Simulated scan of single mutants.
Amino acid sequence: MAVLQLVERKQVRLDKALVDFVRDHMPQLDPRVTVRHALTMTAGIGDWFEEGSDDWQAEWAVLTSSHPLYLLRSNEDYLPLFADKQPHFPPGERHLYNGAGYILLGLLIEAVTGRSFEEVVADDVYARAGMSTAGFPALDDLGPDTAEGYLTTPDSPTPYRTNHYATTPGAAADGGATCTAADLTAFAHALRHGRLLNDEITRLALTPQVDEREEKVRGYRWMYGFGLTHILDNEGTIVRWGHTGEEDGVSARLYHYPQQGLDVAVLGNISWCAGDMGWAIHDALVGN
């Protein structure tokens, strides 16, 4: 949303080379990669962690043993993990979920506005959407009104342990914000009703851009837009849009159902707990 607001103000063009905004941080970035590619996750660049790997748990263990997670507290901290990686494919060839592109977009926001990424999002997105409790507290400084995340540990003396050493301590532009379910539905409502973007850019923000995968899943075509996943039925009608969120000790879903006019937010503070609830609600709403 913050990037699209810059597009609305004509401070950024979607088809402008991303390197023009982040040259100080990643001068070797392929000049063919555009802002649009990063937003739609079609840039093809190497990620700081390849979430789509078949053996991501083992690869995550290797990463965390070689690069302590407590060092990752700002967007710049992630650059050494992907800046020198080879690209997966030429820009625009296809979609591949990629957090590194959003890290670079966070740096773009700072370069264009002269303000911190967190300040821009808090002022221009959270405040305008009425997300009154959303923010960026660090994992080791959550405050009294934020639930801690927990991991299940069936072979340990206690069934749960906190996620303090299992995930990154600070938010970055690819995730990590803290909010309530009411904040999430307020965001979806504000986006739909033009409180974040003008009519033209709102329509763009809610339009699917690229296929996430070739095959259908659960009978739906899955498409990615600008930070939102859309699922479409056989007639090409958008059944649902939104996004998921998963970290060790954190599980989230935000969905909007256009035909029912409903928002659904599911938050949990145990790993991988929101998905089943999200699908159960989905099936109840659409009758599948």
Rank of each mutant, 00 (worst) to 15 (best):
L228A: 03
A186P: 05
L151D: 05
G101I: 05
A100D: 10
V112S: 11
D183H: 07
A147V: 13
P144F: 09
R192S: 11
D183K: 09
M223L: 11
A129S: 08
T168H: 04
D145Y: 10
P159W: 13
P154A: 09
D141G: 14
L197F: 00
L206Y: 09
V217L: 07
E200P: 02
Q209L: 08
A171P: 04
L184H: 00
Y102D: 05
Y97Q: 10
E214W: 02
H95N: 09
L108Y: 01
P169L: 11
P144D: 11
A188T: 09
G99A: 14
P157L: 14
G227V: 11
L204K: 06
S132L: 12
P144M: 11
R161F: 05
M131K: 12
R221F: 04
G143M: 04
D211H: 08
G176P: 11
E214L: 05
N198P: 03
M223H: 03
P169W: 12
D183Y: 08
E93M: 13
H95D: 00
D199N: 09
D123R: 10
R192C: 08
L228K: 01
A147S: 15
F117P: 01
T133A: 14
V217K: 02
G101M: 07
R195S: 00
K216A: 06
D199M: 06
A190N: 06
A122H: 11
A129W: 00
E110C: 06
N163P: 13
R115V: 00
H95W: 15
N198Q: 01
E110V: 06
R128H: 12
G225I: 00
T162K: 08
Y126C: 12
A171D: 08
L228T: 04
I201S: 01
L191I: 01
I201Q: 05
P154C: 10
L204Y: 06
D141T: 08
T168P: 04
L142I: 14
E212T: 04
R218Y: 11
A177E: 11
E200W: 02
R192F: 05
M223Q: 15
R192T: 08
E119L: 09
A205M: 01
